[in-house]
Design a protein around this nucleic acid. Structure first.
Lengths: 253, 253
DNA sequence: ATGCCTTTACTCATAATATGAGAAATTAGG
DNA sequence: CCTAATTTCTCATATTATGAGTAAAGGCAT
């Protein structure tokens, strides 16, 4: 990122107008929009006409314009988890550069973890990829998500194994796993000390929704060797702060 | 619509790109987007840069782009119910002038009815106001919305009372209310004959979503005195036609 | 660490394309 | 029916986006 790409001013104006129409969920005449956005009427008209033609706006009769079908379908495609990921992305980016580590965000689907964000230096070195689904029992994010599962769901998860060892530290005994998850829930974070890969140390924390559900978690990964106690404490603090920041921004959305 | 306004081609391309990024909730590199949308890379880059600068897109690390905060807040403001209200507004306006009555639209939140539209002559005389939340069991709109609630939700609603009488016609017995709601669901509309206010007669009909849910209802209100059988029949017909019109326009969204 | 390949950033000449002022046509509302 | 407001149209202008090509940066594999 050196100097910056020249931006497209017409597009900026278009977006301003779009927002003006949507603002307070209300309806607006084109001329009113033009006035608000400080744009000549004629121009505003072409912009709106284009947006209408593309289905992003719709005329609701009598000089009024509202959000169009295309915009709505966009809304439906962005499900809750995606929203979290989107909100979290820039924040995690920042965190990654602060801690000079790999930062990830994952969600829980079909008893597996879906990695939705991976950022930070060396992000390509790790075997996980965005969009990848991985077993939950052996990663920090996975353990956090499991720990916050509804009781009956967790029970059936634990009963259904098997828990294949990926390293000799992987927890494969359902009972020990249950204890571990209980601890994770109590202390509010999870540690994966070489359970998924020999030299990988990782701390994970939950993202709490406003209603208490935990459907996403974030983590910071490091080499086992590069992690001492002081560093871990610092990293954990940052992780929590980041989680809170994400929670607040998700809730204010 | 005479000949048509000249559309802005660059904007059309931008929107195509926007959709390409959002498509399948996935992340895409700019060059990939450019390829998909058939746009030169350089141009695509400026477009994306602009969208990122405006917060409509965000980079999620390592050549990936996803929906940005601005887009999310935009979409969030467009919740489903608001959209229905927006679509319905002009249609209800028309209806109100046809029947010379008060026409309202309400949605269901927290076991209460939120009035989102009120239009027609004498609209300011009635005690309901836009944005107001009112008990559901005693109004036409409320009964329609209750009638279409999922079974378990309705059960808990009925169990949780109390149902305070506002007039001597208000239904306060959970069993009678349950029967009434069943009838409402069967016949496809609800009548409030002085249950919320002595002299107020009101007919309400549901707005069906494409997937069968009913999260909004509309109503026509009159003085009890001004309502005879012939008039009611005519009003009911108009109400249904209006509901259908709204449904179609919402679903085309 | 090294090199290869993809992706992104920059430069610049070109003209395509959006622009905006104002007049004409349309529609709403009293 | 008339007035006031909004929308549509025309057209000359140059602003503004464009895109090819090149340079830089970043990922990825060996």
């Amino acid at each position: 990122m050196s100097k910056g790409i020249p931006l497209i001013s017409s597009l900026q104006r278009t977006l301003t107008m779009l927002e003006a129409v949507i603002a307070d969920g209300g309806e607006r005449s084109v001329s009113a929009i033009a006035r608000e956005a400080g744009i000549p009427v004629a121009t505003a008209h072409r912009q709106v006409a284009t947006l209408v033609a593309e289905g992003y706006l719709a005329s609701s009769g009598s000089y009024q314009h509202i959000a169009g079908p295309r915009l709505l379908s966009l809304l439906h495609r962005l499900d809750e988890k995606q929203v979290i990921a989107n909100v979290a992305a820039p924040i995690l980016h920042k965190l990654a550069s602060q801690v000079r580590s790999i930062v990830q965000l994952g969600t829980f689907e079909n008893d597996m973890v879906t990695y939705r964000i991976k950022t930070g230096q060396g992000a390509s070195d790790m075997f996980t990829k965005v969009g990848m689904q991985l077993e939950a029992y052996c990663s920090g994010i996975g353990k956090v998500l499991l720990a916050h599962l509804p009781d009956d769901h967790l029970r059936s998860y634990l009963a259904n194994g098997p828990f294949v060892p990926l390293t000799d530290r992987t927890i494969t005994d359902p009972h020990r796993l249950a204890e571990e998850l209980k601890a994770v829930k109590d202390q509010g974070f999870a540690v994966d000390d070489g359970e998924i890969a020999e030299d990988l140390y990782c701390i994970a924390a939950p993202i709490h929704m406003a209603d208490g559900r935990v459907i996403a978690a974030i983590s910071i990964s490091r080499n086992v060797a590069a992690m001492d106690e002081a560093r871990e404490k610092r990293v954990r603090k940052l992780l929590f702060e980041t989680a809170h920041e994400i929670e607040q921004r998700v809730q204010s959305a």
